[in-house]
Amino acid sequence: MASKEELIEKLKEGVVEYEEDTVNEASQQWLDDGHEALEGIMEGLAAGMEIVGDLYDKQEYFVPEVLMCADALYGGLDILRPHVPEKEGGPKAQVVIGSIQGDVHDIGKNLVKMMFDVAGWDVHDLGRDVPLENFVSEQLKTDSEVVAMSAMMTTTMLGMKKVIKMIKDKNPDVAIMLGGAPVTKDVANLFGADGYAESAGNAVSEGIKMIGRLREYQKKD
C-alpha cells in the first residue's frame, strides 16, 4: 500500500505530467485510505498545478501542456471534491465568470475558472459570448463577491468597461477581475477593475499564485 506521502507525490506528479489515469487512481486510493479530501486537493492537485505554473513561467510548459495538466487536475477534483465537508457557518464564496459578448474564446476563462474550482468556490459560469447585462444580473442574483471577465480580442474588451461601471454603480464592493490577451495592466486600471490577468497564460500563472496563497492561508488556520 502506498503511504500518504507517496500518494501526495502521485497526485502532484500526475498533474504535472498530465497523466489523468494516475491522478484518478491516486485520488480514489486517497479516499479509500481514509485521508481528508481537502488535503489531497490542496497538497496534491493544487501543489502540482503550482509546479505547472512555475514551468509555464520558465517557458518549459506552454498553453497546450497547461490545458492537459488542467484536465488531469479536474479528474482528481471530480473524485475528491464531493468528499470535502461543507464549511460550517456562512455560505461559500461565489464568483461570476465569462467571456464577454463578441468573444467566443474561452481558454483563458476556463483556466481562471479552474482556480476558483480548486479553491471550492461556487462558480457561476456564464460561458462565452455573454451579453454585458448578464454579468450584472447574475452578480445581483447571486450576490457574488467576484466578477471575472475575459476578452481575447482588442475589439471586444471595451465592453468590459461598461460592465464594470454597471456593476460598480449598483454594488461598489464587488471585486472585478479582467483577463484576456489584449488587456494590459494599464487598461485594467483605466477601466477601474481590481485585478487583471494579461493572457491565457498569465491568467493561469496568476491563478496558480492565488492557489498558492490560499494553501498558505489554510495552513495557518
Partner: peptide, 15 residues
C-alpha cells in the same frame, strides 16, 4: 453572429 442589435462595435463571430 453579426450582432446586428448590439449598440457596441462587435465583429462577426462563430458562436
Amino acid at each position: 453572429s453579426l450582432y446586428a442589435d448590439s449598440e457596441d462595435i462587435l465583429y462577426p463571430t462563430i458562436p
